[in-house]
Simulated assay, not measured.
Amino acid sequence: MPQSGYTVELGERRFGHINWLGLQTIALREVKRFMVVWTQTLMAPLVTAGLFLMIFNLAIGPNRGEVMGVPFLHFLAPGILTMTVIQNAFANTSSSIVISKVQGNIVDTLMPPLSGLEVLLGYLAGAVARGLFVGLGISAGLFLVLGIVPEHPLVALVFVVLGALFLGGLGIVAGVFAEKFDQMAAITNFIVTPLAFLSGTFYSVDALPPILRGLSHVNPVFYLIDGVRFGVIGTSDSSPLLGFVVCAGASAVVCALGWAMLRSGYRLKP
């Protein structure tokens, strides 16, 4: 008990300072965790993205014509890229926390003199790293297979990082909230997957009825995909600046919630 009280007190006294060694340790742990099983965490998403593009090309690609002034596959590619990045960022943080809770070793993260912010940043570093690895792999494939060269690469990179931060933060919230794997699966299937698929990944929202178009503009993932699409093909459904504001705001809100949950020990401390 005295040791636990000392840890909390230490965390309060260190407000405004960063335990860089502890932060680096958590970040490296998260990166090594997905690198050890790279065939599952990195190779599998690349294969899945390639299959999506191949199936859409075989099914409707040749007959679809241009969308927003570009070939259908060129329009589709940024959506597939973004969807894959955000799903992997979410999976990285959520699975790490849930597995630690189920196995009982979450205490290894809670006991060291680390603040909630440092733990949050460590988890997010792993999510962003995994998202960037997957995004770079898909981008290389798009260049080799479709000859796509991004029109605004820095814009695309900013929205990819924002997407990894947003879904990585959401993964932290979901991982802390979920008590077991089936709860985590429910969050993935009923929240994350609909957000990703109903966000203009495979279509332009301008083709939707007004009501559905309005609902799409409430979805932050729509702006993520639209921003990456602007960075890759140079055109989008909405203003990239508006998308940046919405995505940055949504990421800040989710990460702040994750920080509050980690700091309080909600559903983490026995």
Rank of each mutant, 00 (worst) to 15 (best):
residue 137 G to F: 04
residue 173 V to F: 04
residue 197 F to Y: 11
residue 219 N to R: 05
residue 69 G to K: 02
residue 132 L to N: 01
residue 64 R to D: 03
residue 18 I to P: 05
residue 237 D to V: 11
residue 192 V to S: 00
residue 182 D to Y: 09
residue 160 V to E: 01
residue 87 Q to V: 13
residue 140 A to I: 14
residue 129 A to G: 06
residue 119 V to C: 05
residue 179 E to C: 03
residue 156 A to G: 06
residue 34 F to T: 09
residue 129 A to R: 02
residue 176 V to W: 00
residue 239 S to E: 11
residue 25 T to N: 08
residue 52 F to V: 14
residue 268 L to S: 06
residue 130 R to G: 11
residue 186 A to K: 11
residue 168 G to P: 10
residue 260 A to E: 05
residue 248 A to N: 04
residue 111 M to A: 14
residue 243 G to K: 05
residue 224 L to G: 13
residue 25 T to F: 08
residue 129 A to C: 08
residue 268 L to P: 08
residue 52 F to C: 06
residue 206 D to M: 13
residue 195 L to F: 11
residue 49 A to E: 07
residue 48 T to R: 00
residue 67 V to C: 09
residue 11 G to I: 13
residue 172 I to V: 14
residue 185 A to H: 13
residue 139 S to G: 11
residue 121 L to K: 12
residue 3 Q to L: 15
residue 165 L to V: 11
residue 55 I to T: 06
residue 169 G to V: 11
residue 232 V to L: 03
residue 198 L to D: 01
residue 2 P to D: 05
residue 252 A to E: 05
residue 151 E to Y: 08
residue 51 L to R: 00
residue 255 C to R: 09
residue 131 G to P: 05
residue 37 V to A: 15
residue 45 P to D: 06
residue 224 L to K: 06
residue 62 P to N: 04
residue 135 G to A: 14
residue 128 V to P: 07
residue 191 I to H: 05
residue 140 A to M: 12
residue 149 V to P: 05
residue 242 L to R: 06
residue 118 E to C: 11
residue 140 A to H: 02
residue 208 L to G: 03
residue 46 L to A: 08
residue 8 V to P: 06
residue 21 L to F: 15
residue 110 L to T: 09
residue 257 L to I: 15
residue 20 W to C: 12
residue 101 K to Q: 09
residue 132 L to T: 12
residue 33 R to W: 14
residue 102 V to R: 03
residue 43 M to G: 09
residue 130 R to T: 09
residue 146 L to M: 12
residue 223 Y to M: 06
residue 182 D to F: 10
residue 43 M to D: 03
residue 260 A to H: 07
residue 76 L to E: 04
residue 126 G to I: 09
residue 118 E to N: 08
residue 65 G to I: 11
residue 269 K to P: 10
residue 144 L to H: 00
residue 151 E to M: 11
residue 252 A to N: 05
residue 174 A to W: 11
residue 105 N to A: 05
residue 239 S to T: 12
residue 162 L to C: 05
residue 50 G to C: 02
residue 16 G to D: 02
residue 29 R to A: 09
residue 53 L to W: 11
residue 31 V to I: 15
residue 55 I to M: 10
residue 130 R to F: 13
residue 201 T to F: 07
residue 186 A to N: 09
residue 31 V to A: 06
residue 154 L to E: 02
residue 171 G to P: 08
residue 34 F to W: 10
residue 140 A to L: 14
residue 92 N to A: 14
residue 11 G to R: 14
residue 39 T to H: 08
